[in-house]
Write a protein that binds this DNA or RNA. Sequence first.
DNA 1: CGGCATCCAACACGATACTG
DNA 2: CAGTATCGTGTTGGATGCCG
Lengths: 139, 139
Amino acid sequence: MAGVRSAVRRVPGPCSHWDDNEADFIRHVLDRVGDKWSVLIVGTLEAGALRYSELAYAIPGISQRMLTLTLQQLAQDGIVSRTAYPEVPPRVEYELTPLGRSLLRVVLDLAAWAVDNHKEIHHNRTVFAEGPVSAAGTG
Amino acid sequence: MAGVRSAVRRVPGPCSHWDDNEADFIRHVLDRVGDKWSVLIVGTLEAGALRYSELAYAIPGISQRMLTLTLQQLAQDGIVSRTAYPEVPPRVEYELTPLGRSLLRVVLDLAAWAVDNHKEIHHNRTVFAEGPVSAAGTG
DNA sequence: CGGCATCCAACACGATACTG
DNA sequence: CAGTATCGTGTTGGATGCCG
């Protein structure tokens, strides 16, 4: 954790910013967290394990492709666990892992920030459209 | 904040999940947070105000197009402030607003989570490639 | 039921060239 | 220096159809 801040706080000098290594897997996590389907799925799974069709049902806008794809990604990262029951009518349940729950907490914080500030953001966008003037004297 | 949880915790019943309204602006925030350029810019601006060219310099991989575009988005949302100095050699400085700083904190938390868990995630992806078996008995 | 493969449209992004 | 406009392209993601 301290590693991140130490990498971030460095004044943007000549060429380097934060280490490419760190930015790399941070970007990877960002790809998951920033993906709306991932967030929606993780959020939906907060209540407990759900079947494939239940997820598809709970998240109206999603396509089978995206549902399957995102679930695979999340399963690969160990965020959700996939349990297939070898029954005649196939049944597969997805559930948040401990790692997934810790991610959920972070995502929830993010959502909380969004809720706290969406009014201000919306307001900013509105006034921006009206008069985005922002200039300063020459000195 | 409680609004989000209350919307999330509801068991995915018939058709509803979380309110479309909430998911809407959460998605909007996600579009910013999930965008690597936005994160990079916000992170780079942590140190203080920077000029357009300084940002381009500090973030090697970015194109003018993306830099301008992302900066506009961030400025519209009130995350960064744009100050143009009417000098002969044009000078424009970008700086995090209080809102932007609060976002930075959230992003930093996210990055911290990434740092804390990237080893486990990477490990999960590895073992997933080896033996992703996960089945349960019929009951 | 759960999942995968294919096709195709939309869009995001980068590179380039030009302006004030 | 700080952008804007345009074009080409790579990827994303939805719709469809088929299989265990």
